[in-house]
Amino acid sequence: MQKEKHLSNIIKSKAKDLGFLECAILPVQELADEKEHFQKWLNKEMHGKMAYMARNLEKRLNPELLYENAKTIIVVLQNYYPKATQKDETAPVLSKYAYGTDYHFVMKDKLETLLSFIQNEIAPCNGRPFVDSAPVLERAWAKRAGLGWVGKNSNLISVTHGSFFFIGELMLDIELPYDESKLVRDHCGNCTRCVDACPTKAIVSNQVVDARKCISYQTIELRGDLDEKLKGQFKNRIFGCDICQDVCPWNLKSKPHDEPNFLPKSKLLELTRDEWHNIDKPLFKDIFKNSAVKRTGFKGLKRNLRFIQPETDG
């Protein structure tokens, strides 16, 4: 037993060395408890035009169908809370998670490194990292790991770290010493700050977000025209939205990250309101090279900028 715990500590220590906030090791199991909640969300078409959310439902609920012979899932958290934010308070607002290099690349590289470490130092195995790029119910796994609870805004919230973090997973085909199941109770209580602050009223009930009303969905996921019914409600957001997290009392505990890849170019934080609205393709490519903002692309960003620009601006 002591030897098994030692192996677990070695893996977690390596994860911390790689810059992860937290690391938990769990056995792969079916997430049967999540099915009803997720299916209801889909049935109400709250996923909007994200058709991929409705595909591979069984794989989302059962990782063994996603990764053959999966026995272990390692769940990690990665802080992205920045030391500094945009200087011009009147400028269009970019979500904090998009300040630096695309987190998909950064976290996947770290998880690949962790996999190699386990293969070389712990036991021969096969594994696959997942970073918000496959049908994995990441918040459900993080919750099961005791890394936090799911708040009213549907984000995972940690008593220690708040919610400004990414969640990643590493699936392995070997068994490892597992952490004891230790669900964290819901600490939101009667607080409704996130619900009240959401300008588009996208948080329609406890832990349920209607993506069609969500600024993040509108500015990132949606292709084509934005919903005209939401005109004037974006609070200057042009890529993602942190409003429900910014008002959350638990994020008073958020501490700035020390991940070099997430540091923004100084020009990004210095862009004025006018510079944002007049951004051209060369400047876009310079500032957002390897950025998550490339997901919406230059045309998508210009669409978002036009949407928030008052008609009196011409």
Rank of each mutant, 00 (worst) to 15 (best):
L111C: 06
W41E: 04
G240I: 13
K265D: 10
K14C: 10
Y52T: 03
L222V: 10
N251S: 11
T101W: 01
P63V: 02
E45Q: 13
N43L: 04
A15L: 08
C125S: 11
E169D: 04
K235F: 01
K143G: 03
E175W: 02
K83R: 14
Q218H: 09
L183E: 05
I238F: 09
T90N: 11
L114N: 03
L305D: 06
D246L: 14
E34H: 02
D88Q: 08
S205L: 04
D102R: 06
I118W: 04
S116L: 10
R295K: 15
V93S: 04
K59N: 00
V247Y: 05
R185Q: 02
C214T: 07
E121N: 14
G146H: 08
E175P: 02
Y67K: 09
S266D: 15
F165S: 10
E45C: 06
K289V: 05
K14R: 15
A98L: 06
P129L: 08
K12M: 08
R303A: 09
D132H: 10
N79V: 06
D313Y: 14
L222T: 11
R193D: 05
L94A: 03
L114S: 04
A202M: 04
M50C: 05
A70E: 00
T296L: 15
L111E: 03
A84G: 00
E58L: 05
V131H: 05
K83S: 14
L65D: 06
D88S: 08
E138D: 14
R237T: 06
K182A: 09
Q78N: 05
Q119W: 00
K255G: 05
G146Q: 07
L115F: 12
Q207I: 01
D280M: 07
C191R: 01
R139M: 10
F298V: 12
F288C: 13
V208I: 15
V195F: 08
L176E: 02
E22D: 09
A98Y: 01
E138P: 12
V93L: 12
C244L: 08
T296C: 14
A32Y: 02
K267E: 15
P63S: 05
K231G: 09
E112Q: 12
G232H: 07
F234Q: 11
S254I: 08
T113A: 13
L66N: 02
D33V: 00
L7M: 14
N153G: 08
K289R: 12
D242I: 13
K213S: 01
M107L: 14
Q78F: 05
Y67E: 09
A32V: 07
N120S: 13
S13R: 10
K96W: 08
P63L: 11
V209D: 00
M171Y: 04
R273K: 15
I287T: 10
L222E: 11
N79A: 10
I238W: 03
K5H: 02
L42A: 05
D33S: 12
V208M: 07
P177E: 00
D196I: 06
K87Q: 15
P256T: 13
H37L: 02
R212F: 03
S116W: 00
N236A: 12
A202F: 03
M50F: 02
V75I: 15
D246Y: 09
F38I: 10
L31K: 03
E45K: 15
D186F: 00
Q39V: 12
